[in-house]
């Protein structure tokens, strides 16, 4: 019984560390990608203002693409938070 509780606590604590890493590193990488793209957008808009509408559409789509790994990471993190498959070992 005690061993089971210990295993449960250990799995939950490691899962929390994993969730933090997934969300934290995902957010950092998405921020770096978006900041680089915004920098390029401002550069392009300053050089050729007539291209702003086209660039805006592309930036909107590419932001979604850069954020995709972060969103997938959030989904995975929620899976581990609400329906942790690792806990099946104990049950």
């Amino acid at each position: 019984m005690e061993n089971t509780v210990q295993y449960l606590a250990m799995i939950q604590s490691y899962t929390i560390i994993g969730i933090s890493l997934i969300i934290g590193l995902g957010a950092v990488s998405a921020c770096i990608g978006i900041s680089l793209m915004c920098c390029s957008f401002l550069n392009g808009a300053a050089r050729q203002p007539e291209l702003i509408p086209t660039l805006q559409g592309k930036v909107f789509l590419l932001m979604g693409l850069i954020d995709a790994p972060f969103i997938i990471g959030v989904g995975l993190a929620m899976m581990f938070a609400f329906a942790n498959p690792l806990l099946a070992v104990i049950k």
Binding site: I34, C38, F41, L42, Q56, V59, D67, I71, V74
Partner: peptide, 20 residues
């Protein structure tokens, strides 16, 4: 360009919040 960028970043924040 600055206002457009701010608007796009707001849109992205709304998108992530809605998905989450």
């Amino acid at each position: 360009p600055g206002a457009i960028l701010f608007s796009l970043l707001k849109a992205e924040v709304i998108k992530v919040i809605v998905i989450a």
